[in-house]
Design a protein around this nucleic acid. Sequence first.
DNA 1: TAGAGATATATAGAGCGCCGATATAAAGAC
DNA 2: GTCTTTATATCGGCGCTCTATATATCTCTA
Lengths: 118, 118
Amino acid sequence: MTDENFDVQGFARDIHVLLVLATLRNGPKHGYQIALDVETDSNGLFQFRHGTLYPILHRLEAEGFIDGSWSKEGGGRRKKVYALTAGGRAHLEGRRAHVGEVVSRLLHLISGPGEAPA
Amino acid sequence: MTDENFDVQGFARDIHVLLVLATLRNGPKHGYQIALDVETDSNGLFQFRHGTLYPILHRLEAEGFIDGSWSKEGGGRRKKVYALTAGGRAHLEGRRAHVGEVVSRLLHLISGPGEAPA
DNA sequence: TAGAGATATATAGAGCGCCGATATAAAGAC
DNA sequence: GTCTTTATATCGGCGCTCTATATATCTCTA
């Protein structure tokens, strides 16, 4: 299984994608809220720069993994609220499993003779 | 600990660096052999392109993490053999621990309510 | 012995994605 | 009325990987 070859660049990109999709599992959110939640939930370890997040959201929407719609409550500040689609949920599960296995094999490879990988 | 902020690009680079340093833990090797061993040890999951490996080796040598010396056995094919330095070993342990923790926290964040992260 | 393929190192250029900077705009604080 | 926060968006620079190319030696085979 997972004979799929490892792609370093795709892996780094996957991290951000997974954080977005996983956050949306708790319900629809707009971009700014996603950034705040990811930072809070990770105790500041992971954080999104705006110049990173918004292009990712646009791409995920174009790929059909999230579904965006502008909310207009009282004509106030415009927010684009994103909801996880069925395809997005499937992508999340698939990628999460893949990342988990790659990481497991990586940690096993670089762990010393005495140290257990996990 | 590890209040250090997460850097996506540095993380991708760390993966290659860790693979190199971990392979050298078994003894000195030249670049081409490192590439072969990493690919073999990971059952083809991880592999180094030559255009990726050699610049990394040069940088690691400049940083003092590995020590390179040209071997001239019988005036044959030139090989630059790299050995892990004490600093390199320390760097390996430190980065490995860091990557392990980041990955652990990442998997925890993106794991569903039902699934245990590891 | 001549050619092909594997061994071995090196670098330059292309491509891709993150990051900082900048722009726009409205709501709330004081 | 101005400053900060909220909220989205895009562009240019930068860094790192990857493809392609260059050089050189060794080994195997016809």
